[in-house]
Simulated scan of single mutants.
Amino acid sequence: MKPAIGMKWMDYANKAITKVELTQEEALQVLHAEDDELLPLMDAAFLVRKHFFGKKVKLNMILNAKSGLCPEDCGYCSQSIVSTAPVAKYTMLDKETLLAGAREALNRKAGTYCIVASGRGPTEKELSQVEEAVKEIRATMPLKICACLGILSEDQATRLKEAGVHRYNHNLNTSRKHYPDITTTHTYDQRVETVDTAKRAGLSPCSGVIIGMGESDEEIVEMAFALRTLDADSIPVNFLNAIPGTPLEKMGRTPAQKALRVLALFRFVCPDKEIRVAGGRELNLRSLQPLSLYAANSLFVGDYLTTPGQEISTDHQMIEDLGFEIELCAL
């Protein structure tokens, strides 16, 4: 007798809850699930999400603290040296603007404020500006701070930790094999080392991926297991927003059902980690966005670095309509 639809996914959920690692073949089956299995698959992913995180949703807000002016050639990025996209270009924002961003994060009910700067890595002046702002934010506002400033030295990571930064983001973005097709000015290993540097300094590691850059399903599985090995605490799963003027401008969007299968995969492989449905969710998930929170337990609210996000009130309403609850910052 053919097993009932969804029994296999429940087996996967039980494995994840008990921290039994899926095999590579099992993980690939998640991405190859048929469309009529989507709801049972998301139900199984929700069991894992609910076990570790209940029905709470963590909100994050990004501030593009330094825009454009980047010497790297990342093919997905509108701020890279090879991009002709008409994006704003400015140096690191001053302290008052960074503080205003933190206040806006609170207004949006975000628990984590993400200070992101373009470039290979921070200069001494840029690092000092971030340190000064973070110290004041920590002294006056109930927010966790995530910094994303590029490649870090040991000393820079330590200074960010001492200033009060909680988390450091440096995405793997894609698989090791596919990486040279996306970026040539730095390596996959340099990204891994930056995450490890942040961890050694006591910063919570945040590292994720961008789906839809020409990678295979096998490579998506590889990404999920790489982040499990890296032990990233927070995993933003982005879906490519192919921006005109970038080398990847002609890439098509990820189908909404495929995006949901990807989120389920990351939940099964990294069951107790913060999985954030991140950049490109509005474009790729479209009307299926609410289903993403049955696997993911975190969202960005508002705009991204150079692309607009969904109305903040719409995100708040979506969370409420699901019967979920916004998780406020607990320092």
Rank of each mutant, 00 (worst) to 15 (best):
K2L: 08
I5T: 12
Y12A: 05
N14F: 04
I17C: 07
I17N: 02
V20M: 14
E21M: 09
L22E: 00
E26V: 05
A27I: 04
A27M: 02
L28Q: 06
P40V: 10
P40N: 07
L41V: 09
M42S: 04
D43S: 15
D43W: 10
A44V: 08
F46A: 11
V48C: 01
H51W: 13
F52Q: 04
N60P: 10
L63G: 05
G68P: 04
C70H: 01
D73K: 09
G75L: 04
Y76K: 08
S78Y: 03
V82S: 02
Y90S: 11
L98H: 00
A100Q: 08
K109A: 04
I115W: 01
G121A: 05
E124I: 14
K125S: 10
E126L: 06
E126P: 08
S128Q: 14
Q129M: 12
A133R: 07
I137A: 07
I137V: 14
T140D: 14
M141H: 05
M141N: 12
M141Q: 14
C146K: 07
C148T: 12
C148M: 07
G150R: 05
E154D: 15
D155P: 08
D155G: 10
R159N: 14
R159I: 14
K161A: 15
H166A: 13
H170P: 05
N173T: 15
N173E: 15
T174I: 09
R176E: 13
P180Y: 11
P180N: 08
T183K: 09
T184A: 13
H186G: 06
T187H: 13
Y188W: 12
Y188E: 04
D189W: 04
R191I: 07
T194K: 05
T194N: 08
T194M: 11
R200F: 03
R200E: 07
G214S: 15
E218A: 15
E218C: 14
V221Y: 03
V221A: 07
F225D: 09
A226C: 11
T229C: 12
L230F: 00
D231M: 10
A232K: 00
D233A: 13
N238K: 03
A242T: 02
I243S: 04
G245C: 10
T246M: 06
K250R: 12
G252T: 14
R253H: 10
P255C: 06
Q257H: 10
K258C: 01
K258L: 02
K258P: 03
A259Q: 02
R261A: 02
R261M: 06
R261C: 02
F268D: 01
V269C: 03
V269K: 02
A278V: 03
L288A: 10
N297T: 06
V301H: 06
G302Q: 08
D303V: 12
D303Q: 13
Y304S: 12
P308T: 11
E311F: 11
E311S: 14
E311I: 11
M318R: 11
I319W: 06
E320T: 07
E325G: 12
E325R: 13
E325Q: 14
E327W: 03
C329G: 11
C329K: 11
L331H: 15
